[in-house]
Design a protein around this nucleic acid. Sequence first.
RNA 1: GCCGAGGUAGCUCAGCUGGUUAGAGCGCAGGAUUCAUAAUCCUGAGGUCGGCGGUUCAAGCCCGCCUCUCGGUACCA
Length: 677
Amino acid sequence: MNKFKRTLVTTALPYANGPVHIGHLAGVYVPADIYVRYLRLKNEDVVLIGGSDEHGVPITLKAKNEGVSPQDIVDRYHGIIKKSFEDFGISFDIYSRTTNKTHYDTASEFFKTLYDKGEFIEKETEQYYDEEAGQFLADRYITGTCPHCKSEGAYGDQCEACGTSLNATDLINPKSMISGSVPVLRKTKHWYLPLDKHEPFLKKWILEEHKEWKPNVYGQCKSWLDMGLQPRAVSRDLDWGVPVPVEGAEGKVLYVWFDAPIGYISATKELTPEWEKYWKDPGTRMIHFIGKDNIVFHCIVFPSMLKAEGSYILPDNVPANEFLNLEGDKISTSRNWAVWLHEYLEDFKDKQDVLRYVLTANAPEAKDNDFTWKDFQARNNNELVAILGNFVNRALVLTQKYYDGVVPAAGELTDYDKETLEAIPEIVKKTEEALDHFKFREAVKEAMNLARLGNKYLADSEPWKLAKTDPERVKAIMNIALQITANLAILMEPFLPFTAKKMQKMINFEGKEWDVCGKKELLEAGHKINKPELLFEKIEDDEIQAQLDRLAKTKEDNDAAAKEAAPAKENISFDDFTKMDIRIGTILEAEKVAKTKKLLKLLIDTGIDKRTVVSGIAEYFTPEEIMGKQVSILVNLAPRKIRGIESQGMILMAEDANGELIFVSPEKNIKPGSEIR
RNA sequence: GCCGAGGUAGCUCAGCUGGUUAGAGCGCAGGAUUCAUAAUCCUGAGGUCGGCGGUUCAAGCCCGCCUCUCGGUACCA
C-alpha cells in the first residue's frame, strides 16, 4: 500500500537573528516532531532535519548595530535556538546551520551545477545603492513618499498606507533605511532562475498530482501559477553569504532563499554518508514542515531548483500551518510580543509537555489561532491534570493499594469489559489516521479520549465499592485499567514524550514500539509496577497572572517607545517655507470614495475657490462629523489624480505614532482663505 | 488594487461528492460519586453557520455582491 521506503522530514530553518518562540514551535517544530516520533515508533526509516538560517541582510544589520560581526550574531542565536529545541524534545537527527563548510560546499556545488547546465539567465539591472553603507539596497530597505497616496514611510516594495505594490525607483525622495542617505542607481549583474521555464511542469505536478495538499497551500500555489511565473534572482550584492561560485561574481552571494533550502541537503550530508538515498531515491517521501509565509519557496522555487538540478526528488507534501497569535496580537520579535521558549522554561520548569500539548491542541492548522495564558492554564488543569494525569494516578494508586503494585489477572470478563477493551484499538486507529493526514490537533484529542475512556470505565465499574464484596471482579477491572494505562504510555509518546517516558518508567514498560498499541495484554498478570508519582501539577492563577503582567509591561514599554517624538528634519530656509501656501478652508461636502477604506472626497471652500481634495482620513472620521469643519489646507500642491479623482491640495493632519489622525484647525472660526504663516 | 485562505455555540475548532432535529472539547447550570491532584461520571441549556440576494424538492456546503481577519503580490526573511 505504501510505495515509500523511507521518510525525510525537513523543518523550516529558523532565522538566526533572534531566539525562537511559541509561534515557531506551534507552526513547525512540534507537528514535525510528533510526526517523526510516530514514524520512529512504527520502526520506519525516518530522519528529521533542521538547522539555523544564518545569512541575509537583517543579520548583517543587527551585527552592525551591535558593533560585532555577523558570525557573532549567528553563533549567539544558533546556540540559543538549538538549546531551546533540545529542551523541548524536538528530536532532530541533526540540527545544523548554514554557515558551516559542508553547507558552503553543497550550496556552491548546487549553484555551479545549475550554472553549467545553463539553467540560469544573467541580467544586468539598475538598483539603488547606499554609498554611505557601501551596499546595494533591497527594495524593503528603501523608504520614501508613495507616488500614489503621497503618504510618507512607504517601502520600496509596497506602500502600507494605500496597499499599492511599488518599485523602489517609483518612490519620491527615496531614503536608505540603513544609513538614512539618499541612494543612487548603479548597474549590477545577477543570476536568475527562470521559473517560467518550469511552469508547465509545476502546474501538472501541483495542480493535478497534488490535489491532496492543504487548501491554504494548494490555493497559494495556484495563485502563483495562475499569475504566471517570472525569472527570480538568486544572487545578491552582499558580503555575507555563500559566494557565487563563478567568475565575475566578486562581492556577490547566493540569495538566502536560494541557499537556505539547500541547507536541508547539507544537513543530511553531515548526518549520514548515505544522504543520497534520502534525496535522490524516488522511494523516499519528503515532507516539508513550514509556516504559511514560506509556501511559495517550498512549493515553487525549491522544487524548480531541484528539478533543474535533475537528480533530486521533490516533496510529497508541504503541510504548512497558519500563524499563532499571542493574546490577540501578532507575535513580533521586534516588539518583544512573544513567549520565548528559553524564558518559558525558567518560569515553567520541566513543563515542556504542557506547552507542547497546548500548542498541539490549539495548533493553527486551518487558520490563525490565538494563544492565551488562560487557555494554557485551562488545558493544563482541566485536561492534562484532570483527565490524563488523574486517570493514570487513580489506576496506579488503586493497584498499589489492592495488590501492592502487582498486576492482577483479568479472569472472567463482562460484556462491558470487552466493549471497553475493544474501544482501545478504535481510538488508536483514529489517532493514526489523523497523524497520517497531518491533523495533529485531532490526533491529540483522540489520544486523550483513551484517558477519558479509562475514567469512564472506572466510574462505571466502581472497583472501590466491590473491593470488599467481589475481589475477583476488582482484579478484572484493575487489569483493564492498567492495560489502558500501558496503551496511553505508548500512544502519548509522540505528543508528550517526557510524560510518556515517565509513565513507561512507572509501569516498568520501556522500549516498546507502536505496534503494541491497541492490544489488551500489554501488562501481564504478575508484572510489577513502580510507585506512582503525579504526571502533571495544577497551574495556579498567580503564575498565569505573572505572565499576563509581563505582557502588559511589554505593551507599556512599546507605547512609551512609540511616544518618543521623531527627530527633527534638517533645516530649511525661510524662502523654502514661504513657498508653501497654507490656508484655512471650510469643508463644505464630504463623501466616502467608493471601494476604498481610507479615502474621503472633500469639497473645500478655500476662500480663493471651491475645490476637491481627496484625503486618506476615512478610518478616523465619518463624512457627517467633519462637514462644516475648518481645517488647514496646502493649496499650492501640484494636483494629483487619486482613484480617478483629481485632488487639488492637501489637508494638514497631525499624526501620532499609532497613526491616529487629528485635524490642524483654527482655535476659533476665521474667514476661509486666511493664510497660515 | 489583484490573488489565496479563513469567518460555524461564551472560547477553540470539526462538518465527506448539497440530504433528516448542525457536532466535539473546554467553559456554564443541575445531578451522581469519593479510588483519585475538589479530580471523575451523567444530564442539560446554549447557534439567523459574517451579511444580503440567487440556484435547488433541499444550502453551513453551489453562484453573485458586500463585509471583517490573516497571508502572498516576485529584492523582507
